[in-house]
Design a protein around this nucleic acid. Sequence first.
DNA 1: CTTTTATATGAACGGATGGTCAGTTAATCT
DNA 2: AGATTAACTGACCATCCGTTCATATAAAAG
Lengths: 205, 205
Amino acid sequence: MNGWSVNLCRMARTQGSHSDITGPRIRDAALRLFARHGYAAVSMRQIAAEVGVQAGALYNYIPDKQSLLFELMQGHLAQLLEAFAELPRPEGALARLRAFTGFHIRFHLARPDAVFIAYMELRNLSPENFAAIEASRQRYEGLLESILTDGIAEGVLAPPDPKLATRAVIAMLNGVNTWYREGGRLTLDEVEAIYWDMVRKALGG
Amino acid sequence: MNGWSVNLCRMARTQGSHSDITGPRIRDAALRLFARHGYAAVSMRQIAAEVGVQAGALYNYIPDKQSLLFELMQGHLAQLLEAFAELPRPEGALARLRAFTGFHIRFHLARPDAVFIAYMELRNLSPENFAAIEASRQRYEGLLESILTDGIAEGVLAPPDPKLATRAVIAMLNGVNTWYREGGRLTLDEVEAIYWDMVRKALGG
DNA sequence: CTTTTATATGAACGGATGGTCAGTTAATCT
DNA sequence: AGATTAACTGACCATCCGTTCATATAAAAG
């Protein structure tokens, strides 16, 4: 039940409802519900109810459930790549690695639902959709890997294996999302510093 | 369709089928299907078909779908803790950390489906079941944490924060499961050596 | 051979599913 | 004011869901 529509009587177009509002609200609701219960476990009717609308109305905004999932994941990865691209690029691989570490932690912590979905619902994507998502993921991984190879060339990093180190760092940083809660033992700055310390040491900086 | 039952005519008890055989086969099929498609997306009829039996027959072996999931996760974690307990306990925290690293990688790589389920289907557990699983997971985490605190006491390890280091190491090692394939670029021994190198350096050993 | 028991079938239960669509209304345009 | 369009409803479709149960049969026990 949203603040605009107080439909006590039957009506088709609810007062003040617009495409610009309902569309994003559908994505928001789906994101939250998919993250909480899983794509397969969430029905279109649940999403519709969250938005305050009947199930049929969803299909004015999305072709089907699968596309909804894909767009959420695609949008998340696009934001991730864009946000990183807009980051200032420090001089020196070590500084860039530090920037990557901090960026990754903060960006992902700010979007726990999207991150969760992007990692857990890969198997619910159609093959073509999966390929598109996987390509974005690998592009992001490539960004870190080239920082590491730069660092090797500069002589400031000496990871045992750049490809594995890339995956290891990303897995390690992703882990933060599973336990960090605001107001916990450590501030975000402290967490960032601790992980940067471990990353730097692990890669022999 | 299994090798024992070639039911061309209607029959109730299929030739040679026994509780000892069907029970584990149900768990095997459920494990594989849950890992591949997700708990919510797999129907009891799909599991039954995989076993070569009708859906109703499953309920001779499990009370319901939820219990099936719980037993799979519970069994996996019990095996994990038991296997680690049976491991020889080397002298010195550094040696124990190395043993833990190798054990974790190998144990998890040998059971990708169970690992996947144990991490991805937590949200499909009832609250009581979730609490039980979470307790086991934390017990395992505690094993690594005490290795780290031992290492600090011995002066051979200096992680920036033992609790975070514990989580970071486990997340990092878990990552191996997402990409390692037998016959790939690296042997298991090489992977183990590379990760051990990164873990040791990250924790300041 | 007869009885018992374990194991399976297959139909049925109420309800939920993703998706479609004709009809209805509110806002907008002319 | 009248026509058009965007937004939504509510009924509906075929299908699937987890689970139950009366029934049937094969194996084991006596």
